[in-house]
């Protein structure tokens, strides 16, 4: 079973073995509104924790998505190229962004579980 972690920047990461699948949370897509374009990194690119991983363009504005952990991109979600609205429809499922080969699994300890993330979102509303 993959284990899901959440970041303060409203990203989620599903970890299975040493691979982490990353996306933005349902709360984040709701805040951004209609997503019309995603700039995703290329396979093989390495990121340190906190680096700009992707850019999400909504009708109104562009928002950066930061790597919640360090790692190397092993796969990107090709579906999003022509269907960026998949992020609006299913942010925590079909709307995933990239899969990273994790660089340092101890970084996962800095992230939140689902309950802690829910509490964070509730406190911001």
């Amino acid at each position: 079973m993959p284990r899901t972690y959440f970041s303060e920047d409203h990203e989620w990461i599903d970890v299975e073995g040493d691979i982490g699948m990353i996306g933005i949370t349902d709360h984040a897509q709701d805040q951004l509104g209609d997503i019309v374009f995603l700039e995703l990194p290329e396979v093989g690119t390495s990121f340190a924790k906190g680096d700009e991983l992707a850019v999400v363009e909504s009708v109104k504005a562009a928002s950066e998505v930061y790597a919640p952990v360090s790692g190397e991109v092993v796969e990107i979600n090709e579906l999003l190229k022509d269907n960026p609205d998949a992020v609006n429809k299913d942010a925590e499922g079909d709307g995933w962004f990239v899969k990273l080969a994790l660089g340092n699994v101890t970084e996962l300890g800095d992230l939140m579980d689902a309950d802690a993330y829910k509490a964070l979102v509730d406190s911001q509303n």
């Binding site: 509104g33 209609d34 909504s58 009708v59 109104k60 609006n88």
Partner: peptide
């Protein structure tokens, strides 16, 4: 600024 979503409101 937004009720249901900018595209559907557009």
């Amino acid at each position: 600024a937004r009720y249901r979503g900018i595209i559907v409101e557009h």
